[in-house]
Design a protein around this nucleic acid. Structure first.
Length: 768
DNA sequence: AACTGTGGCCGTGGGT
DNA sequence: ACCCACGGCCAC
C-alpha cells in the first residue's frame, strides 16, 4: 500500500490532541452515521541534526535514525509537557549554534500531524465526501446608520440572524428579535453540538463571521463551546495570509473549519470564470445556486431589519444554502488529498502543494525510521524553466495542437530524476503510485455516467492527484522544503526543452509550420489536412525518449499569433483568447469589444466593416458617446490607507487611484482586496466610476483604441494596417480591396521593429 | 509562519 | 523622449 497507508483507522473524521489529558482523540463516523470516540496514547517527537540540540534528561529518549542523512536524531518524549520543554531547549541550543538558519536543522510538525506521520494513518479512509456531516454557517449583522460595514466592537452592531444549513437537509434560522443575541449565539453552539457536525463551512467565515462572532460572544460573556469535547473555539493569533489580509487561524476541537472564499479564489486562479468572489455571484456563475433568490444589496439589510421585512429571512437562509452548495463544489479535491496525506482536512486547505509532496516523502522515510535531509540545503541560484517561443506571427488556418502528457512527471520517471538526497528512491516510487492511481481514476471515469455522483467524486480524485503529482516538480526548486534540489529541477526542465525542440523538428521535417510553442505543447500547421489525429501525434512523437507520450490536443480553424503566450484561436466560430494581451481582467470593455469584432470581421473577410467599426468607435469616443463598461477599469487595493501614506513618505511611490480615494470621507469603503473602479477624465485626471458622467478624456481612449488595434499588427501589410485603423475616411470600395494576409498568404517580411516604424508614420521604409 | 516553479507582456510611475 | 524597475496578470 505504501506510500498510502493501511486502513487501520477506518472512517476517521477527526483526530485531535487533547492537551490536558495528553491523549489523541479519534472520532470515527460509523456506517450508522454515529460518531464513535476513542482515545489513544502516543509519544511526541521531533528530529534534529546533532546531539548538541538534544535535551538532557530521563524523560527523553534520543533515537538515532538509520542512513547517512543529516537529520538523524529523533527526540522521543513521554509527555506533551516534556515535548514542549524539549523543543524549547532544542530551539535555544539551535539558535546559539545556527542562528537564523536554526529551523533548517530541525524537523517538527504539530502533534496531530506527527501522530498521523508516525502511525501511518490518514483521515477519511473508506469515506466519501458526502458522508462527512457538514454545516454551513452564515450570520447577518446589523449596521448602524451611516456605516458601510458592521464593526463587532460597536455595541449597536449586533448579530441579528444566524442561518445554518447542513448536508443532511436540515436548515435553521435563528432570529435575534426572538432569542436575543446571547440566546442566538448559545443556540448556534447547541445546534452544532447536537447535530455533531464534522465540518463547519461558510463564505469568508475565517475573515468575517468567526472574528465577529468571537468578539460579540466575548462582549456578552458567552463561551463558544463548539468543540466535540465541549471546548471553546480557539484562535491562534498569528496568522496565515488569508487572501491579502492576515487573519487568525480558528480551531474547533474535533471539527474542521473550511472557508469557501480562499478555496474559491484558488479555484478561479486557473479557471478564470468569475467576475468577483461574492457568494451569490459565484453560485450563479458556477450554475450551482440551490434555488432562485431575490437579489438585493447588502447595505439594505439593516434597513430591512428595521422594517421587519420578511425577505431578509429568505435571504439569510439562502446564504447558508449557497455556502453549502459552494462547499460541495469546491471541497472534494481537498477531501481526497486528506485521504492521502498526514494532514487534517483543515490543514490540507491551508497547506501549499509543495509542502504536501515533501510531506509524502518524509512520511516514506520515517516509516522506515530513516534519517532526513536538511531543509533547503540543495537550492541555489535561479532555476531554468520551460521553452517558449512564438515562431510564426500572424494569421494561420487549419491548426493542430499536440502536447506531452504530464511532461515533468514523465521526465522524472523516464530519466530517473530525483532529489540527490533521496537514497530510498521514494520520489520515483511515490510519483509512480500517484500516477498509476490517477490513470486508474481517469480510466474508470470513462465507464461512469457523467451526471452521477460517482463521476464527480472520481473526477475530483484524479484532479487532486494531478495537483499533487505536478507539485513534485515544483517542490524541487523550492527552498524551505526538505527534499528540494534545484539541480534535479533544472535537469527536468532541460530535458523538457530538448523534448519540445525535438517535437518542433519533427513537424518541420514533415514540412509543417510551427506557430507557437510553450513548455510542453506545440501549435502547428501541416501541408495536408487529411491526416488523422493519431497519425499527427505519431508524427510529432517520432524519436522521443521512451515514456514520453504525445497527445493530439485539438484542431482549430484559425489562429492569430501575436507574441509568446499571447494568441487567439477560433474553433467552430468560438473565440478562445490566450494571454494577458487578449484576456486580462484589466482590459477595458472597449478593448474586449474591439478584439471580438475584429476577429469576427477578419474571419468573414470584411475589411470594410472593420475599417468602419474602427472609425465609428473613434468617432464615438470623440463625441463621448460611450457606455460605462467600455471606459472603466480598476485597481485592486493591496495596502491599507495608512500603509500607502507611509509608503509615500518613505519611497514616494504614488498611485493615482489611491490618491483619488485618500482624501474622501468614505475612504474606508475600500478595504484590502476591494477594487477602485475609475476612468480617465480630461487633462490626465482620473475619476471614480461612481462619479461617471461621460466626461471621458477622448485622447486617452483614442490612444487605447489605437494600441488595441496594434495587437492586430500582423493582419495586413503595414501600409494597409495604417489605412484600415485610421480615422481618415476610407471608401468601402477601397477597404474591400484590402485583404487580410490570411486570405492572401504572403511572405512574412517585416520584423516587429519595422512594423512599428511604419505605424508611427515612417513611410520611408523600403519594405516592399 | 509558511512557502510548488519559470517565462512573458504591458502599463505605471519614477528617473534622466 | 527614452529608459528602467516593478507589479499585475497570464500561460504552462
Amino acid at each position: 500500500m505504501w506510500p498510502f497507508t493501511e486502513n487501520r483507522f477506518d472512517r476517521v473524521v477527526a483526530i485531535e490532541h487533547d492537551e490536558q489529558r495528553d491523549q489523541f482523540v479519534q472520532y470515527k463516523r460509523n456506517s450508522q452515521d454515529i460518531i464513535e470516540e476513542t482515545s489513544i496514547s502516543s509519544k511526541h517527537f521531533f528530529i534534529v541534526d546533532t546531539l548538541d540540540l538534544c535535551p538532557l534528561g530521563s524523560s527523553y529518549l534520543v533515537v538515532e535514525l538509520v542512513g547517512e542523512l543529516p537529520l538523524r536524531y529523533l527526540v522521543l518524549c513521554d509527555s506533551y509537557r516534556d515535548y514542549l520543554s524539549a523543543l524549547r531547549e532544542a530551539k535555544s541550543y539551535g539558535r546559539a549554534k545556527y542562528g537564523e538558519a536554526m529551523s533548517d536543522h530541525m524537523w517538527q510538525r504539530s502533534p496531530v500531524e506527527a501522530f498521523l506521520m508516525r502511525s501511518g494513518t490518514t483521515l477519511f479512509t473508506n469515506l466519501q465526501p458526502h458522508e462527512l456531516k457538514v454545516v454551513a454557517l452564515d450570520f447577518e449583522m446589523y449596521t448602524s446608520a451611516g456605516k458601510h460595514f458592521a464593526a463587532s466592537s460597536d455595541p449597536m452592531d449586533k448579530i441579528i440572524l444566524a442561518s445554518l444549513a447542513d448536508n443532511r437537509g436540515q436548515t435553521y434560522l435563528l432570529d435575534e428579535s426572538l432569542l436575543g443575541e446571547a440566546g442566538l449565539i448559545k443556540e448556534v453552539c447547541r445546534l452544532i453540538n447536537q447535530n455533531d457536525y464534522d465540518v463547519i463551512c461558510g463564505h469568508n467565515l475565517v475573515g468575517f463571521d468567526l472574528p465577529y462572532l468571537t468578539t460579540r460572544a466575548q462582549q456578552l460573556n458567552i463561551p463558544l463551546c463548539l468543540g466535540r469535547n465541549r471546548s471553546v473555539l480557539k484562535q491562534r493569533a498569528i496568522t496565515r495570509r488569508y487572501g491579502l489580509r492576515e487573519a487568525p487561524e480558528f480551531f474547533v476541537f474535533g471539527r474542521h473549519i473550511i472557508d469557501t472564499l480562499p478555496l474559491l479564489i484558488s479555484w478561479d486562479i486557473t479557471k478564470r470564470a468569475l467576475e468577483n468572489y461574492r457568494l451569490k455571484d459565484a453560485v450563479i456563475a458556477l450554475g450551482i445556486s440551490p434555488r432562485d433568490r431575490r437579489d438585493f444589496d447588502r447595505g439594505d439589510i439593516s434597513q430591512m431589519w428595521d422594517s421587519k421585512a420578511a425577505d431578509l429571512l429568505d435571504y439569510a437562509q439562502a446564504d447558508a444554502l449557497d455556502s453549502l452548495a459552494l462547499y460541495s463544489f469546491l471541497s472534494p479535491a481537498l477531501f481526497f488529498q486528506t485521504q492521502m496525506l498526514p494532514l487534517t482536512y483543515q490543514q490540507c486547505a491551508a497547506t501549499g502543494t509543495g509542502t504536501k509532496a515533501d510531506l509524502s516523502l518524509i512520511r516514506a522515510y520515517l516509516q522506515k525510521t530513516h534519517s532526513l535531509p536538511l531543509r533547503g540545503a540543495h537550492v541555489l541560484g535561479e532555476g531554468r524553466g520551460g521553452l517558449t517561443e512564438a515562431k510564426s506571427l500572424g494569421w494561420h488556418q487549419d491548426i493542430h495542437k499536440a502536447d506531452v502528457a504530464s511532461l515533468y512527471p514523465s521526465i522524472c520517471l523516464s530519466f530517473n530524476i530525483k532529489p540527490r538526497t533521496d537514497v530510498l528512491n521514494a520520489f520515483p516510487a511515490v510519483l509512480k503510485v500517484l500516477t498509476e492511481r490517477r490513470l486508474e481514476a481517469k480510466a474508470s471515469l470513462k465507464t461512469l455516467p457523467p451526471d452521477g455522483y460517482e463521476f464527480k467524486a472520481t473526477d475530483a480524485l484524479q484532479n487532486s492527484l494531478k495537483i499533487l503529482i505536478n507539485s513534485f516538480y515544483g517542490m524541487l526548486g523550492t527552498s524551505g522544503l526538505y527534499f528540494s534540489d534545484s539541480e534535479a529541477s533544472n535537469d527536468i526542465t532541460t530535458r523538457g526543452q530538448e523534448i519540445l525542440l525535438k517535437m518542433v523538428d519533427n513537424v518541420e521535417r514533415a514540412h509543417g509550420k510551427v506557430i507557437e510553442i510553450d513548455t510542453d505543447g506545440i501549435y502547428f500547421t501541416l501541408p495536408e489536412s487529411t491526416k488523422t489525429a493519431h497519425a499527427i501525434s505519431c508524427l510529432v512523437a517520432e524519436e522521443l525518449p521512451p515514456g514520453i507520450r504525445v497527445d493530439y490536443d485539438g484542431h482549430y480553424d484559425y489562429m492569430y499569433s501575436y507574441a509568446p503566450k499571447n494568441y487567439l484561436l477560433v474553433k467552430n466560430d468560438l473565440l478562445i483568447r490566450k494571454g494577458v494581451v487578449f484576456r486580462s481582467r484589466r482590459l477595458f470593455g472597449l478593448q474586449n469589444d474591439f478584439i471580438v469584432v475584429c476577429v469576427d470581421k477578419l474571419i468573414r473577410g470584411d475589411s470594410a466593416g472593420l475599417a468602419a467599426y474602427y472609425r465609428q468607435t473613434a468617432r464615438r469616443i470623440r463625441a463621448r458617446e460611450v457606455e460605462f463598461d467600455s471606459v472603466i477599469t480598476y485597481l485592486v487595493v493591496d495596502q491599507t490607507m495608512a500603509e500607502y501614506e507611509e509608503g509615500l513618505m518613505t519611497q514616494g511611490q504614488r498611485s493615482r487611484p489611491l490618491d483619488l480615494i485618500a482624501s474622501r470621507p468614505d475612504r474606508d469603503k475600500w478595504t484590502l482586496r476591494s477594487k477602485i473602479y475609475y476612468y480617465h477624465a480630461g487633462n490626465g485626471e482620473i475619476k471614480l466610476a461612481e462619479d461617471f458622467a461621460k466626461d471621458i478624456d477622448p485622447s486617452y481612449y483614442l490612444e487605447l483604441l489605437r494600441k488595441t488595434a496594434e495587437k492586430f499588427l500582423y493582419i495586413f501589410s503595414p501600409q494597409d494596417w495604417y489605412r484600415i485603423f485610421s480615422e481618415t475616411p476610407l471608401s468601402d470600395e477601397e477597404a474591400r480591396l484590402i485583404r487580410p494576409w490570411f486570405f492572401v498568404p504572403r511572405q512574412m517580411p517585416a520584423t516587429l521593429a519595422e512594423y512599428e516604424r511604419v505605424i508611427k508614420g515612417d513611410f520611408q521604409l523600403r519594405l516592399f
